[in-house]
Design a protein around this nucleic acid. Structure first.
Lengths: 197, 197
DNA sequence: TATTTGAGTTGACGGCGTCAACAGCAAGCT
DNA sequence: AGCTTGCTGTTGACGCCGTCAACTCAAATA
């Protein structure tokens, strides 16, 4: 079978699953290797056979989270017709993902993991997300017949706008708001990008 | 004198100063109460006479950081002529502050402190920053004769844009860049806000 | 001068990340 | 078959950490 295991039976996956739960419950900073081991039913140092360090486990978790975000963004883009609608959908999906998975989002964009050469998976998964944003903005520019030597400015602008909005929302800096108010604000702000201030 | 001290001589201030250094060196997550006490030359539990917990010390540090940011923003706004220029200056100052004080910025907007009712100072200092942004955007709207029932959308848009840009920059998500490239990008992105995409 | 009180110390508890040394099981070699 | 090797997991320890209870001591007060 695919399960390459004998002692525990795929401890690596069990650790990732338990750590994933733990991440949602307590956030990246409070996620402890020992607790993850406890949940997997193994001793406190067993995780070191599968992860070099706590940070390595967080990096693996982050890679999975980036993948989830990429999937959500792709799905949202697919179900939108036309470049402006796609851009809207991208922004909404980005903020929705952050609001629904705040701890994953904090892990991905926080200081808990450093984007080093080690953990190439994490870097690659992060680059996937970045590419989706770049392509979507690129398509939008093309549809509006805007041609630049480099699309860095619009890409940075669009990404900054939705990323900042996501951050301010999950850190409660825009005040508490209902789900409807929230999605209305997201729509208005992404609309702001398209129409300008 | 103002120094209300006898044993150590204003330990509270010494702790805040040492913790401030520590914050810049290692970031909020790695800032330890014991190390701050060591730097102030007192025992490990002495800080508890001045701060209820580690989080309380971080909250005090954050209040100071918010105050610094408010000062930087106010200074930048004062030395700009006209509402659009002021808005530009605000955005540039915001991002500059984040880039020059990444650890302070992470503390302010990260999950290390929860904006609770306790630590009213922190909440108030944070509200100051928010007010500066709101007023500046409000003035800009007024100058352009734009009147809305609530300026929430433009305020959220402007703040999101500069906040997201700051975040992506200090977490190195836009690639490494020179100082000139960085400030050029900041200018372009804030310009993007004014002219629209 | 006697007492109270605020500021700092000592010692301890449990939790953490991590390391070194050890144990057991699976597979491969002879 | 028996021996060896290498992977996987365990035990025990080290030094950090936040925090609490109990103690000491100087300064202010009565």
């Amino acid at each position: 079978m695919g399960k390459t295991s004998y002692h525990h039976g795929n401890l690596r996956a069990a650790l990732l699953a338990g750590a994933g739960d733990l991440l949602e419950e307590k956030g990246p900073a409070q996620l402890s290797l020992r607790e993850a081991a406890r949940r997997a039913g193994v001793s406190q140092t067993a995780p070191y056979r599968h992860f070099d360090s706590r940070e390595a486990l967080l990096a693996a978790l982050a890679a999975k989270a980036y993948h989830d975000l990429a999937t959500a963004l792709n799905d949202a883009c697919k179900s939108a017709a036309g470049a402006p609608a796609t851009l809207h959908a991208l922004g909404a999906a980005y903020v929705d993902f952050a609001v629904e998975n705040p701890q994953k989002f904090r892990l991905m964009f926080g200081p808990d993991i450093t984007m080093m050469e080690e953990w190439e998976d994490t870097r690659a998964a992060s680059a996937d997300v970045q590419n989706i944003i770049e392509t979507t903005v690129g398509d939008y520019l093309e549809a509006r017949r805007i041609r630049l030597k480099t699309p860095l400015v619009p890409v940075a602008s669009a990404w900054s706008l939705i990323h900042g909005l996501a951050m301010l929302m999950i850190e409660q800096r825009l005040g508490e708001m209902s789900d409807e108010d929230r999605s209305a604000l997201v729509a208005s702000v992404t609309g702001f990008f398209v129409t300008g201030g």
